[in-house]
């Protein structure tokens, strides 16, 4: 018997605290798989954000730095500038990145900071129990949008398409959006992550992979239901694929 799919080395073999069906677990594994494939575990650093994935530093088997909520891109900037030959993974949720940390992500991207942001978009605040996020869809319910997000009458604003927003900035070189709701999308997402990490190691400017991720608990659904909801509701609005790719390295391929 030959082992086909085993446990990535740079991910600790322990059970996570994440809820059953939560997309973070898949995303952690993808990051670890790519880091193993690139052989960079000894020079990898992750910034774990405030949010559910603050627990990432319990699961990744490499150094971590935990900044205040929303300031992950700023801390990652400081880290990457000091350790340019390291792989810096700026792991963020949609509250961290698109709400409190909007200024930080826009300016880090605009400066072309050479770390890679892994932006987990689950359209809700997970850790704090299901509040509306900047990426919550119109009509989607949340504890702070009990009748569903209403941008018009209730002035709750519109869901933010982050990749498209950052694509206008000169410093961004690679912006892709994947999803972890089914095997095909998970595999494509891994390719985006690999491309972004390779670009980072080539010293190319700002790279980000936004990943649509299911949050069964705070969407109030069974895991199987949540991946279907994601497919029918999030994917039509948050288009999958490479939103921007101006990597120089691409030219050589």
């Amino acid at each position: 018997m030959e082992l086909l799919y085993g446990h990535p080395k740079s991910l600790k073999p322990i059970q996570t605290k994440y809820c059953p069906g939560c997309g973070h677990g898949v995303i952690h594994r993808l990051i670890a798989e790519v880091i193993d494939e690139l052989g960079i575990q000894g020079k990898a650093i992750i910034t774990n954000p405030v949010g559910c994935s603050i627990w990432a530093d319990l699961y990744f088997d490499f150094d971590s730095v935990q900044p205040p909520h929303g300031r992950t891109p700023a801390a990652s900037t400081g880290i990457k500038r000091m350790l340019p030959d390291h792989l810096v993974v700026c792991y963020q949720g949609d509250g961290d990145l698109a709400a409190i940390g909007t200024a930080e992500i826009i300016h880090a991207a605009n400066r072309g900071e050479k770390f890679t942001t892994i932006f987990v978009n689950n359209a809700i605040y997970g850790m704090t129990g299901g509040q509306m996020a900047p990426t919550t869809l119109i009509g989607q319910k949340a504890t702070t949008a009990p009748y569903g997000r209403d941008p018009i009458d209730a002035g709750m604003g519109y869901p933010i398409q982050v990749c498209e927003l950052l694509a206008t900035l000169g410093g961004t070189k690679y912006l892709a959006r994947g999803a972890v709701n089914n095997a095909v999308n998970v595999k494509k997402t891994k390719q985006y992550i690999k491309k972004a990490f390779e670009a980072q190691l080539r010293g190319e400017g700002f790279t980000m992979v936004e990943i649509l991720s299911q949050c069964p608990t705070n969407w109030g659904m069974q895991p199987k239901e949540s991946v279907e909801w994601l497919e029918q509701n999030m994917i039509p609005f948050y288009k999958l694929g490479e939103i921007k790719n101006t990597l120089d390295g691409e030219a050589q391929k």
Binding site: P68, G78, I79, M82, A103
Partner: peptide, 26 residues
């Protein structure tokens, strides 16, 4: 050496936080 004019004082202190975490004098 590294100099950045940050987008805000909040960002600046958190850049220091990141740099200091690597052991640099920031």
């Amino acid at each position: 050496r590294t100099f950045i004019q940050a987008e805000s004082e909040v960002a600046a202190i958190n850049m220091v936080y990141g740099a200091a975490a690597t052991g640099a004098r920031a």
